[in-house]
């Protein structure tokens, strides 16, 4: 597959999604179901990075209910993905806050000082997906979240900033430290 084909396909997919979002905004049930099917697995994976599987399933219901309620108010249908993850982020963080203040505080705290700064390549990191998946569990929740958004959804930095309600500088820094921490764990798991 060539780059042009990929771009064409991405454009086509984006257009189809925009169309479905607009139909869902007009309360087309089939279009809403299509959106649910497109994102349910990815959202569930994302929510698992915050909480246990049983709770993640409940959170997934809450996320989609909130999406259904607020969808007609979405001004830019092309920004649906970012908007969806922002809702998922808010629902997950609220759940953490409800559970206990300690867990919420842990979410805010990012142990970036413990991680040394070194340059890391995404492709190199993702070569062994199984290791990456296991290593993600070892990271702090904010690091887990930012890497999931980057690698699972391939979101741009400014989009991630919008999802987690942080500045672009914070996202860049957090992503850098998260990648470095991930690489460190992956290397340890490899026995290097």
């Amino acid at each position: 597959m060539t780059d042009t084909d990929n771009k064409m396909s991405d454009h086509d997919e984006a257009l189809t999604e925009k169309l479905r979002v607009m139909q869902a905004q007009a309360r087309d049930e089939a279009a809403f179901q299509w959106l649910v099917q497109q994102y349910e697995r990815r959202l569930l994976y994302y929510l698992h990075r915050f909480t246990r599987p049983a709770e993640a399933a409940d959170l997934l219901q809450d996320v989609w209910l909130r999406v259904y309620l607020k969808l007609p108010d979405l001004k830019a249908p092309e920004a649906f993905r970012v908007w969806l993850y922002k809702i998922a982020h808010d629902v997950a963080v609220n759940q953490l806050r409800k559970k206990s203040r300690r867990e919420a505080a842990a979410f805010q705290r990012v142990d970036e000082a413990e991680v040394s700064a070194e340059s890391v390549d995404d492709v190199e990191l993702l070569e062994n997906i199984e290791l990456v998946h296991r290593a993600l569990q070892e990271l702090s929740v904010p690091h887990r979240e930012i890497l999931t958004l980057r690698f699972l959804e391939d979101l741009e930095l400014n989009e991630i900033a919008e999802v987690i309600s942080c500045s672009l500088g914070t996202v860049k820094s957090r992503l850098h430290y998260a990648r470095t921490a991930l690489l460190k764990i992956v290397k340890e798991q490899c026995g290097e």
Binding site: Q37, E40, L44, Y45, A56, A57, L126, I129, E153
Partner: peptide
């Protein structure tokens, strides 16, 4: 890569999506 990552998570793969919907 996304599909590979999702496939690694047993909870995501084994989830009953039909019932969820």
């Amino acid at each position: 890569q996304r599909e590979q990552l999702l496939a690694q998570d047993a909870a995501t793969s084994n989830f009953n999506y039909e019932e969820f919907r």
